[in-house]
Each structure stands twice: as C-alpha cells, then as structure tokens.
Design a protein around this nucleic acid. Sequence first.
RNA 1: GGCGACGUACCCAAGUGGUAAAGGGGGAGGUCUGCAAAACCUCUAUUCAGCGGUUCGAAUCCGCUCGUCGCCUCCA
Length: 470
Amino acid sequence: MTLRLLDTLSGEVRPLEPFNPPDVTIYSCGPTVYGPAHVGNFRSFLFADILVRYLRYRGYRVRWAMNITDIDDKIIKGAAAAGQPIEGLTERWTRQFLIDAAALRMTTPDVLPRATAHIPQIVELIERLLERGHAYRTPDGSIFFRISSWPAYGRLARLDVAGLRVGERVESDEYEKDDVRDFALWKGPKPGEPAWQTSIGPGRPGWHIECSAMSMAHLGPSLDIHTGGVDLVFPHHEDELAQSEAATGQPFVGTWLHCAHLQMGGAKMAKSTGNVARVAELLDAGVPARALRLALISVHYRASLSYGEDSIRAAAAAIDRLDALSAALRAYGEDRPDDPTLLDALARTREGFEAGLDDDLNVSAALAALFDGVRELNRRIDARALSRADAGRALALLADIDTVLGIGLAPSDALDPDLAAMVEARAAARAARDWAESDRLRDTLAERGIAIEDTRDGQRWRRLSEVTGG
RNA sequence: GGCGACGUACCCAAGUGGUAAAGGGGGAGGUCUGCAAAACCUCUAUUCAGCGGUUCGAAUCCGCUCGUCGCCUCCA
C-alpha cells in the first residue's frame, strides 16, 4: 500500500508519486508572526507534522520547509501600534511559535525560512516575471502579476476569474492596477514602511511571492507537497501557483493539501475575529499538552474540527488509557513462554494503523486500529498470556506507532527523587499491610499527578493527564 | 449572489452499494481487588437530518427540503 492523498488542484485522491523518490519535499505555510499563533493555526501545522512523520516512518527521505512570514501589512501595523521595531515584534512571536510548537511535539522543520532573509531570491523571481511579460510596474513603484497573462489562473480554487466579485476593498486599494484582480508582487515604498533597495527599485515584497521564492530556494522549482489551511487556497496558493509556474515553466507542486478549519463556538477560529485560543494560555490553564495535540490531530484533516473542553477531556482520557497499557506492559513480570498469537495481533494493529494513514491520512481510522490493539494487549495481560519478551515487543510497536502520532506512548521517564521515594514508601507500607499509610501515600501521590495501581505484577505507577482547565 | 463541504448514538467520530453500523469519551451492570485504580466482560444507533427516487440490495448513488460551516476580502 502506498499513501494516497487528495490533491486540491486535480480534486482527485492519488497515490503519492514523488518527483525524486525516496526524497519528498514538503512546504508548509507557517505563521505570520505579528502575534501568537492560535490552536487553529497549529491544527494545520500538526497535520503537516503527521504527514512528515508518516512519510519518514514509511522510509521516505523528507525535507520539510515551513515559512515564517516576518514582513507584511499586519506586522507593520502591529509594530507601529506597539511602538517597537518590526524585528522586535517578529522575533518575539517567532520565538513563541517555536516554544508552542515544541510543547505540542511538532517535528522541527528542516528549514524555517523567513521572508526578510530572502529578498534577493524574491527580487530575482519578480525580475523573471517582468522579463516574461507576466508582471508590470505601476507609477508608485509597485509590481503586479498580470492575471490575464496566465490562463490557468483560478484552477486551484475553482473560481471563475471573470466572475470574481469585486468588493468594496477595490476602491480602498491604494495601488493602481491594470485589473483589479491582479495581485502585488512588490509593493512600492511608502512613508513609515520598511523598504529594501533592490534592482527592481525600492519597496517590500507582496504577500504571496515570498512562498514561491523560499520554496524554490530551499526545495527546488518543483516540490512534492504543499500544505496549508483551506483559507489559503484563494488567493494565496492560487497566486503562488500562477507566479511560480509563470516564472519557471515547470510544475510547481505535485500535491496540494489543505486542512479544514478549527471551529470554536460555532465559528472559525481566526485572529482577525478574536475567536482564538492560544497554546501557551491553554497550557497555563492546565490543559495537558499531549491531550491538546491528540485533540488536534485525531480528526481527519479535511473535516472541520470543533475545539472545546469536551474534546480535550476525551483526548486526555484516551491518553490515560494508552499510558495505563504501557505501564502494565513495563511492569509485566509473568515468566512464561512466548504467546504464539501475539505476533499476528501486533501485525494486525500495525496494518490497520498504516491502512488508515495510507487512506489520505485518516487518523481516526488509524487510531481505531491502535485502540483495537490496546484491547487485545490488555486481554493478554489479564490472561497472563504473554512472556516478558512479548511485553517488550508490544512496547516496541507502541513506540513505533508513536513516531507518527507523537503523543508520547510508552514513556519511560523517571520520577523526581521525592516522588520516587514516596512510591517506594507506599510499596513498603502496603507490603507491611499498613493500609492507612499506604492509602495516605497513594492519595498524596494522586494529588501530585501520579497514579498508583496494585496489580498481580506488584505496585506500579503512571502519570495522570488530568485536565485542570481549558 | 456565485462556488464548495458537511449533517452517523449523550458527546467526538470511522464507514462512500452487499450477511451482525469501527474506535474514543461518557453512562449502567458484572468480574478482579484489603480498599481503590487500572483492566476485562455485558449493555448503551433495528438505524445513519427529513422526504422522494434508482437498485435484488443504500448511511453509502440521484433529486428536493431543512440545518450547520467555509471560500469568493486579511486569514492555518
């Protein structure tokens, strides 16, 4: 089986066919750093993360680039409003983005290109578009892409270009264009705005050009997969596609992938409407990071997902179930021969997991296979049917699956010394049949997030992922 | 106004023509346990928004109606 993905441009589900297997290049539209990214942004970043992780699990050599947009209208306004330099603002929120991403166990992209560090590549691309007649200058020093020069324009978003609605925005547009639908490649200098002195004149890049320039700079003229939120289909990706192919004459992207929106309170989560929940704030409020990650990845990326306390609670409970299994496997001490049926059971779990992900990253289906496996393993533990080596095999499968999910299955982290001492004391109290003391210690540990369980394999502990806020 | 997605149990959700409608959460009962927790077992949708149609057969295909959401403008 190979991974099949729904490509936005063709509208078809197709097997992934990288330009240069086993290399796969992936470009993801990342954050615009004028403020903190919200969990809706992270849904789309984590969907790309799952894609990258799964391709690596499948043996592909993935090169993943995620851009950091550090120059645009909102950043300029934001910096002016805060009375601070642009670099101060963008650096602060870039740092926060990386902190949030790490908290959510997002794979660090191989490259995190920033727009302001790619002005020469942007300028070069615009020059090529000017040479080829796809772009034109306006008196204020701006440069626009001429949509009428590119017949395929509108294909990605399935928009009839002639029918594009011309909104009120047009009259307030401060730039002169030949056609209202043309988009800016380069914005001429304006008082109070940063400008770069370049061979195409002073100014700053438009919004879409940076992604074309940076993806080509880091991944080549043709990349295998390009991801982003559905809201980027138009105009951002439509424009990227047009300007890139117009400049190079080569196919820009093999597969376009778009992630549906995160909903909150019945509407799309968006910075512009203020309907947002931020990662750092949620974590501070007591939402477990692992549960947040699971909640954000467990629904198919093309289905809209509602964020709320219920989904966090359900995710936290699911993680507890997984943790309980790995704790039981680690503690398992029955000395008996290998279970002859185990390998089949593990293989079924793995195959089901892979089959789900192969089907356009159907994480829900993959998780269902995982949880079927969890029940199978728990049954065998209860029946004392496994050998110790079997328990190790099962743990190895969980760890393997977790290279894709990244939710921290089969954790084996050590306890703080004082907690470890309490755990030991509790075991001793119980061995002495001092129920009052053993119960007291168990309660105390529970308050500190450690669950103590007495089993046929003796006392064992695991961390609880209790939701305390959100 | 144009384009599109979706509507499956208390909640989330898989399933896109074929004998019992995955999985997670929650709830009820049981087993085990010093007590508990975890785990396991049983139960929790004769039914897939509604209506009509196609078919031997539909949650799955077609039409209409209702509802929710998105894109067309900054946006992950």
